[in-house]
């Protein structure tokens, strides 16, 4: 390949940061993996201990709760966010007035960091100052909404805040998908006599599958690596009721000074991510191959 000198600045601008970033990610992933097999504590050095860190981590109550929570949070957050986003997209798709304004409003939470979202919702959901207090002050003194301090329900407050933050993003993708449906299909369905429900369930949504899956995958990986939202909203509490894997990693590494175990937990998270992303990658690859062959 002949290097075009005049384009050298472009190459530099693109490739240098890319290689640095990729190198950094790969290096640290490998390094973390290495540490996870050692007895490292405060310092990143130690003897090879095999899978001991993993068995240790998997045996802790902390990790079990974190993983159960991840299942609840992951499922609730992903499904409800996608449904909310889809619902908003369908409503916006009715060519209503003020669509642009509404779209911006729904997308706005995405511009906030999870820390801001978490903090704001921690105030809203705080029984002493948020929604419960408001309703109480309005006269319904018996009203209770104290999920934030309820061991069993606290995880759902994180789901709620997560939905609030991310459903605008799902909506934007779904709306783009709805808008790309061929108009003649809708006309044909109208002539066939399909009502709105059947129109969406039988004609429009089935052609939206690729987008649904893409949205799901993005939301799932968001769910798996959620850290800041929980930190700001519940701090993992009450107790450790709302622990998530990322918090456990943080806890091991920086609170208790057990780098080996923290690394093992981090690698476990990486494996969970891979379990989601690899099938998706393979599916996309197969699809592209099939499209190229067709």
């Amino acid at each position: 390949m002949k290097l075009n000198l005049r384009r050298l600045p472009e190459y530099l601008v693109i490739w240098v940061p890319l290689l640095l970033a990729a190198g950094q990610i790969v290096t640290f992933a490998l390094w973390t993996t290495w540490i996870s097999f050692t007895s490292a504590t405060l310092m990143p050095s130690g003897d090879w201990v095999g899978l001991k860190n993993y068995t240790n981590v998997l045996a802790t109550r902390n990790w079990k709760i974190a993983f159960d929570n991840l299942l609840i949070f992951g499922f609730g957050f992903v499904v409800l966010t996608a449904l909310t986003g889809l619902f908003l997209a369908i409503l916006l798709d009715q060519r209503i007035r003020g669509e642009n304004v509404l779209r911006s409003i729904f997308l706005y939470p995405l511009a906030l960091s999870f820390v801001v979202t978490g903090t704001a919702w921690s105030w809203l959901l705080n029984p002493g100052m948020g929604v419960q207090k408001l309703v109480n002050d309005l006269g319904w003194t018996g009203f209770r909404f104290d999920w934030l301090v309820d061991r069993d329900m606290a995880i759902w407050t994180i789901v709620i805040a997560g939905i609030w933050q991310s459903s605008g993003f799902a909506m934007a993708l779904f709306l783009a998908g709805l808008r790309s449906v061929e108009p003649d299909l809708v006309k044909a369905a109208q002539i066939d006599g399909a009502g709105p429900f059947r129109l969406y369930t039988r004609v429009i949504l089935p052609s939206l599958w690729p987008i649904v899956i893409a949205v799901m995958v993005i939301l799932i990986q968001t769910a798996i690596r959620t850290f800041d939202l929980v930190r700001a909203l519940t701090g993992g509490g009450p107790g450790i009721a709302t622990q998530l894997p990322a918090l456990v990693v943080y806890d091991f590494m920086f609170q208790r000074g057990q780098l080996g175990r923290g690394s093992a937990a981090a690698v476990l998270m990486l494996l969970t991510l891979a379990a989601v992303l690899l099938p998706y990658g393979i599916w996309k690859y197969v699809q592209r191959r099939r499209a190229a062959n067709a």
Partner: peptide
Amino acid sequence: VAPSDRDIAMVFQSYALYPSM
């Protein structure tokens, strides 16, 4: 009268076949 009640049938240039069916 709604399109489905007009006793008509239409063939489109793009065919407009439902891709998932």
